[in-house]
C-alpha cells in the first residue's frame, strides 16, 4: 500500500474500474465530459472539478453530458436504474438537489417498497457538499440531513481517499439509491489506496483515533477538524476517540454507543445546520440508549442556523473549527 493518491484520483479510479468490470455502469451529468462531447482533448475538463477526467476517452458514449436540467437527467438515471442499468449521475452541488426531489424522494426511494421488493433502483447520485470554498450560500451547504430523513436512500460521505474508492465501488454495486457526498475541500486530500478494487461495507464507522476520555462523532471534512482538536487536547492529556461515521444511512450506532460507554462523554460535530442534523440525531440516540454511561451533558458543534456567508472572514467563523471542537470537549470534561 505504498501508493498515495488523492480523493479525486480515488473516485476516478473507482469509476474506471467499475465501468471496466460492469457494462451496465454509465456516468451522466453536467460537463462530466467537457462540453459538447467529442474525441481526444474534448474531455480534458472531466467535470467541474475533474473527477471524470480521462474516462470519456476510454468509455466514449458511456459518459453522457446532460443539459442543465437536473430534474430531467436525475429522472432519467432513476428510470435507467429501475430498468437494469447502474447509472452514476453527477449532480454538481447538493444545493441543486431541490429541483429533483420528486425523482429522488418519491420515485427512487420508494420503488422497492411500493413494488413489494420486485423493483430495485441501483442509482448513485454523486454530489459536492461543504463550505470553505468561497462559493456562497447556494453552493456551500451540507444538506446531508435532508437525505438521511428519507427511508430507502443510502447516504455516504467519505473523508479520505481510501474510503472514497471503496465506498464509491460499494455504492455502484449496491442495489439501492445512494446519495454519495464529496466534500469539495477534500478532493486533494491523499492517503494510501490499493490499486485493486475493493468495497467498504455500509454502516461501519471508522474509529480514526482511539481515546478514553471523550468521544467525538462526525463525518466528512469535520473528521479532519476533529483530529486537529484531538491533537490540541492531547497536549492537555485529554484523549479523544474520533469516530468517522462514513455512511449516515445506514448509520453504525453500535460503534458510537460502545465508544460512549467507554468514555462517558460525547461531542457531536456536524458541518450541517444544528436543527435536525446528524449531530442532533446522534445526540438523541445516545441519550436514549446510553444515558447511564454519560458523565456530562452532550455537546454539539455545528454550523449556525444561517445561510453560508460569502465573506471569507465570516465563512471561516461559520464553519466548526478545531478550537471550537476542543472547547466543547473541555466542557464535557469540566464536571
Amino acid at each position: 500500500m505504498a501508493r498515495k493518491i488523492s480523493i479525486r484520483q480515488a473516485l476516478n479510479e473507482a469509476l474506471d474500474q467499475e465501468m471496466a468490470r460492469d457494462p451496465t455502469v454509465f456516468v451522466m451529468g453536467e460537463d462530466i465530459v467537457g462540453g459538447m462531447g467529442g474525441d481526444g482533448d474534448k474531455d480534458a475538463w472531466g467535470g467541474v472539478l475533474g473527477v471524470t477526467k480521462g474516462l470519456y476517452a476510454k468509455y466514449g458514449d458511456r459518459l453522457l453530458d446532460t443539459p442543465l436540467s437536473e430534474s430531467a437527467y436525475i429522472g432519467a438515471a432513476v428510470g435507467a436504474a429501475a430498468c437494469g442499468m447502474r447509472p452514476v449521475a453527477e449532480l454538481m452541488f447538493i444545493d441543486f438537489m431541490g429541483v429533483c426531489f420528486d425523482e429522488i424522494f418519491n420515485q427512487a426511494a420508494k420503488f422497492k417498497y411500493m413494488f413489494g421488493g420486485k423493483a430495485e433502483t441501483p442509482v448513485v447520485i454523486r454530489t459536492m457538499i461543504g463550505g470553505g470554498f468561497r462559493a456562497a450560500a447556494q453552493h456551500s451547504q451540507v444538506l446531508t440531513p435532508l437525505f438521511t430523513h428519507i427511508p430507502g436512500l443510502k447516504v455516504v460521505v467519505p473523508s479520505n481517499a481510501y474510503d472514497a474508492k471503496g465506498l464509491l465501488i460499494q455504492s455502484i454495486r449496491d442495489n439501492d439509491p445512494v446519495i454519495f457526498c464529496e466534500h469539495k475541500n477534500l478532493y486533494g486530500h491523499e492517503s494510501d489506496v490499493p490499486q485493486e478494487s475493493y468495497t467498504i461495507p455500509f454502516g461501519e464507522a471508522n474509529v480514526v483515533r482511539e481515546g478514553k476520555h471523550v468521544t467525538i462523532v462526525t463525518y466528512g471534512m469535520m473528521v479532519h477538524r476533529a483530529l486537529d482538536a484531538a491533537a490540541l487536547l492531547a497536549k492537555d492529556k485529554v484523549e479523544c476517540e474520533v469516530i468517522d461515521l462514513r455512511t449516515l444511512s445506514p448509520i453504525d450506532w453500535d460503534t458510537v454507543l460502545e465508544s460512549v460507554e467507554n468514555t462517558g462523554r460525547l461531542v457531536c460535530v456536524d458541518e450541517a445546520h444544528p436543527r435536525c442534523s446528524i449531530a442532533s440525531d446522534v445526540s438523541a440516540k445516545v441519550s436514549q440508549e446510553a444515558f447511564k454511561a454519560l458523565k456530562a451533558g452532550i455537546q454539539m458543534v455545528t454550523a449556525p442556523h444561517t445561510p453560508v456567508p460569502f465573506s471569507p472572514a465570516l465563512e471561516d467563523l461559520y464553519l466548526p473549527s478545531a478550537e471550537k471542537i476542543a472547547s466543547a470537549a473541555r466542557k464535557t470534561m469540566a464536571n
Binding site: M1, Y162, G166, P194, E196, S197, Y198, T199, I200, V207, E210
Partner: peptide
Amino acid sequence: SRQMVDDLLKYKRLDG
C-alpha cells in the same frame, strides 16, 4: 491492535 485489524480488513475487502 486497531491497526492490525484495520490492515487485515483492508486486505479482506479486496475483490477476490
